[in-house]
Structures are given as C-alpha cells and as structure tokens.
Amino acid sequence: MLEIRDLHAAVDGTPILKGISLTVNAGEVHAVMGPNGSGKSTLAQVLAGHPAYEITGGEILYHGENLAEMDAEVRAQQGVFLAFQYPVEIPGVSNAYFLRAAYNAKRKAKGLDEVDPMEFLDLVEEQLKLVDMDPAMLHRSVNAGFSGGEKKRNEILQMAVLTPTLAILDETDSGLDIDALRIVANGVNALKRPDNAAIVVTHYQRLLNYIVPDYVHVLAGGRIVKSGGKELALELEARGYDWLLEAVA
C-alpha cells in the first residue's frame, strides 16, 4: 500500500529526514517511535502533504502512485488521514458541518452523491459511540474550547467517519489520561480492517499496550535505526533510547 524509498525532507532548508525506507502493507499496524527531534512528526506531516515540508530526495509510492505529487486534499480524498498532534480550532464552524463537508468531499472525489444533513447525522451518531462522545459536541465549533482529550477523540471520530485506507496517528497519546487513552485506542482498534493500515507515531510505549503493532520502527536523526516486532517497543520501554543511539553513533 505504502512504499517509502530513501526519503529525504527538509523544513526551511534544514534537513530533517535523511533517508527513510519503509513498506506498509494492507492490514498492518506500524509504530514509529523515537526520541524528541528524531523526525517522527515530520514523517507524518510529509506523508500528509504539509506545504512547509520539502521533499529533497527519494520517493513515496501510495498504491503505486507518486504521493508527493498529490495535493494534500487529493491525498485525503484517496484515503490518507492524519490524526493531528495539535488539532486546529475553526471558530464558528460546527463540528457536524465540518465533518459532513469532509465526508462529502471524499464522496465527490469518488464520483458518489453527497449525503444530506439528516442522513449524515444518522451515520455519525453510530461513530460517536465508538469514541464515547456526547452528541452535543457535534454542534460545537470545531475543536474550539475542547479539552486536550476531547480534541484527540474528535480526531478519532473524524477518522471513523472518513474510513481512511492509511491512517497516520501523530502522537495521539500525548496529553491523554489513561481513560482517554483507552477510548482513543479502542476507537483505532475497532476501525482496523484487512484492507487498511495505520502508522502510529508515538514517543511512549504505553499507547502500544492498547494498539498492538505488527512492526515497530525506531527513528533517530532522521533515519530508521532499528525495526522489529512488538517486543521492540517493550525493550525500548525497559532500556530507553540511548543504547540504540549509541549503537548507531
């Protein structure tokens, strides 16, 4: 589904990613871990198409197509979803309206009819249960005045509604208490299907107690320094990152 080959990327001329190669197949969950400043979030932003990040080398193939050449909205319409580390507030725009616009944008791109507000409300109510969200949240402005946990749950709600093929979760666990973490993780697990995949970017192992990855990759200095199975995450929890960093130094 996703094939990253020797990817280099920079922001404001400063190189951040220095040769990343990673293959993600349908049905897989990949965890990307690493210390602060290792390039984890940059990788997530580059995959989603943030304009501030410049690809300086390598390539990204998504279903065999060159992802780097697609606009951010086209990637989204084709099933790439980024759950933001810092979800943005859009004052005056209700969550329900925003969700429906996003849902319809995707349908339109597929040549399907747009759904009307009533139909959509039925659809979204099902998904609300998944993230244990009060329906009243639909009528509040997008993320405006939401607590940290509410914002993250809102991201998962969007993911549930948009049913992405490739979901990228950027430090979704940061700032969450244990209950919120469980709700978010349950949501992600419930959305897992044989034909989709997820990349879970996280600093800590604890999220991986709830979302069990098939593969774990450790990023340091813009490169993947070690890959392994889920047991690698446990090892990192026990030993920290230093031994890996020393090994590559």
């Binding site: 198409g49 606009d71 979803f81 943005v88 859009i90 004052p91 725009v93 944008a105 995707k106 969007q158």
Partner: peptide
C-alpha cells in the same frame, strides 16, 4: 493560518473550500 488551511485540506477540502469555511465561521 496555514495550519487551519492545511487541517481542512487534510480532511479533503480544497483551498477554496477551506478559506470559505474559515471565513464563514468567522462571519456566522
């Protein structure tokens, strides 16, 4: 902000829809 627009684009809306949505929210 660029971040607001990117957030909406990442949800599948084009730049025009994104700006419209932000402005209409502001003027609601």
């Amino acid at each position: 902000g660029e971040d607001q627009i990117f957030y909406l684009k990442q949800r599948g809306l084009d730049a025009e829809q994104a700006v419209s949505m932000i402005v209409s929210g502001f003027c609601k």
